[in-house]
Simulated assay, not measured.
Amino acid sequence: MTILSTWLDAVVDQFELHDLNLADLTAGLWGPGLASIAPTRQVGLVIARRLWQRAAKLSTDPLLGLKVGIGLPLQAMNATGLLMMHSATLREALVHMERYQQLVSNSGRITNHKAPGGLELRYTVTPCHVDMHHMQIDSLFGGLLAFLKHCSTRSISPSHIALVAPDRRLAPRYAELLGCPVTLGARNVCIAYEDRALDQPFQGADPALLGLVRAQAESLLRAQNSSDSLETAVRAALSSRGFADVTCEDVARGLGITSRTLQRRLSQNGMPFRRLLEAARMDEAFFLLTHSSMPLPDVAEHLGYAEPSSFWHAVKSCWGSTPRELRNNAQELTNIASAPMKPSRKSTSSTTAKVPR
């Protein structure tokens, strides 16, 4: 459930280049007293999703996600990018991407599927109580296609891409930026490649360097899996013990280790116990405020806040909205989603596009 901070830092830089106010975008995101995140650290995907939701509110450009992704530097993909860059062909690069993509992002999973005459890349969003904005998905695939163009001197553009961005009228502008046919408003993200593009050799690929980077990537993958397992175990312990009076010593005792060992391992992963506790509290707060009718004072007490004002300020700093605003916004979205819609025969026939399978 994490994203590489190198990628997220590059996204923030792109936001600044597109004239978005960084103070409004990042306020309260990195934790108390932190103005930025350490490089090559894994950051909770909730933070990235909150960042993109704020950006979508602040920007008037419907192509922001795509433009941010296309503008990301090659370094944003870190070791995964090096593996893809030194693969023998696009087909091999996509195999490496599928295995090592979680070193960059766990917001979703890209999987490769054989198709007649080629290959399909399908994207599944990681379930989370904070929705993934379609602009964030645009940025991921804008960044991926832009990166792959740098890996070969020959044309390796996909034959088609389908994205979930809702405004189908923007499809020609997407196609112009991505250099391939695009369908918008799709139910699922899908990228199609033909065999002739998949088997084009990558000039300049270094097999020896590829072997070294692959070994390093495997080491990073093992370390990340261990880190994710520890954070998951701590979050589960916090949830079961309650947030009011839980201490690091309580959690460590339940995990069968000393509190000093737990603190050290969490700090090595860039998430000290106090920050992890506060992050877990805010995740629980978001869920209770948007998925339950529990009174606000009871939510504050459940999360261990002695004063409702402390709870109010914590939620406002973390989510950019007050507890009541979060609850009201969630109710409005529920009402919109449940409202009956009259089908339009004309609009259905004019906007339905065939997505390759």
Score class of each variant (00 low, 15 high):
L4T: 00
D9V: 09
A10S: 13
D13I: 05
F15V: 07
F15H: 11
E16R: 14
E16M: 14
L25F: 07
L29N: 02
L29T: 03
S36D: 14
I37E: 02
T40A: 15
T40W: 13
Q42A: 15
Q42E: 13
R50W: 06
T60I: 13
L63S: 12
G69Y: 06
L72C: 13
A79I: 05
L82T: 00
M85W: 02
E92K: 01
A93D: 02
A93I: 00
H96C: 04
E98H: 00
E98P: 01
Q102D: 06
L103Y: 01
L103A: 04
R109D: 02
E120H: 15
T124K: 13
P127I: 14
P127Y: 09
H133E: 14
M135T: 05
K149C: 06
I156Y: 03
I156W: 03
H160W: 12
L163Y: 03
P166T: 12
D167H: 14
P172W: 15
Y174D: 05
Y174N: 11
A175Y: 01
A175E: 13
C190P: 00
A192T: 10
D195L: 13
A197F: 09
Q200W: 02
Q200H: 06
Q203G: 12
P207N: 09
L209H: 06
L209K: 08
L212C: 04
L212V: 03
A215G: 06
A217W: 01
E218I: 06
L238W: 01
T247R: 08
C248T: 04
T258M: 12
R264F: 12
R264Q: 11
L266M: 08
Q268E: 15
A280D: 01
M282R: 02
A285N: 01
F286E: 03
P295C: 11
V299K: 04
G304W: 00
Y305E: 02
P308H: 08
F311I: 06
S317Q: 09
W319Y: 13
E332H: 09
T334D: 11
S338G: 01
K342G: 05
R345H: 11
V355G: 08
